[in-house]
């Protein structure tokens, strides 16, 4: 049999990761939940005379935390990680394929979320697409480092809903992973992803 090229190995791995994401019920429910919550809270905000885009920096990011996290921690349920690494033994290829797959899934999901918010509420906040996608990437990397859903979820939600809001008025807050500075957010997402990739590359599976 003819050997696959390196590019083909990577694109095959990417297709597999995409299939994994779309056939996992927890991912499907999370996406539907994100859209339902967005629509409901947008209606409530409009009725209260508040800015409808507030929901995109409030409860909605939690849904993207779950998306990113599950893409990684679901590997460690039922021993699926062994199946993955037997099919795609090169760790960097396996990780990059999953990274690209989560971007390809969360990007459009975030786009649709912003669209739902704009259609129901009137105002659109396009920057939220980038923010929500970056949040999913940070959660994915944390999931790869901790490998277990519950501790990672508790840690991330504690940060986003307790620690983050507590330090919101401080001068450095805009440079934090939930801050408004784009460059800082990109550095956080890239940095923690690099750390997770290094761990995935070296650790026993």
């Amino acid at each position: 049999m003819r050997q696959r090229s390196d590019i083909r190995v990577l694109t095959d791995a990417f297709r597999a990761e995409l299939l994994k994401l779309v056939t996992l019920p927890a991912i499907q429910y999370t996406v539907l939940g994100i859209w339902a919550v967005t629509a409901l809270i947008t209606v409530a905000l409009v009725n209260a005379g508040q800015d409808n885009t507030d929901v995109l920096s409030g409860p909605v990011p939690a849904g993207f935390v779950v998306l990113g996290l599950l893409s990684m921690t679901s590997e460690y349920q039922g021993g699926q990680i062994r199946t993955t690494l037997v099919a795609v033994p090169r760790r960097i290829t396996a990780y990059v394929a999953r990274l690209v797959a989560i971007v390809v899934v969360t990007g459009p999901v975030a786009g649709a979320t912003v669209a739902v918010n704009a259609l129901v509420g009137g105002r659109a906040d396009g920057r939220a697409i980038g923010y929500l996608t970056a949040t999913a990437l940070i959660a994915q990397a944390v999931g790869a480092l901790l490998r277990r859903t519950v501790p990672a979820l508790v840690g991330l939600l504690t940060y986003y809903f307790v620690i983050g809001p507590l330090v919101r008025d401080r001068s450095f807050a805009e440079y934090l992973p939930d801050g408004t500075n784009w460059l800082a957010l990109s550095v956080w997402a890239a940095g923690i992803t690099a750390l997770a990739l290094a761990a995935f590359h070296t650790r026993d599976a």
Binding site: E17, T23, A87
Partner: peptide
């Protein structure tokens, strides 16, 4: 080696793709 909430067919399909 399969995630419990996937169907057997979906499980084998992603492995074949990979």
């Amino acid at each position: 080696g399969a995630h419990r909430s996937r169907t057997a067919r979906a499980h084998l399909r992603w492995i074949a793709a990979a």
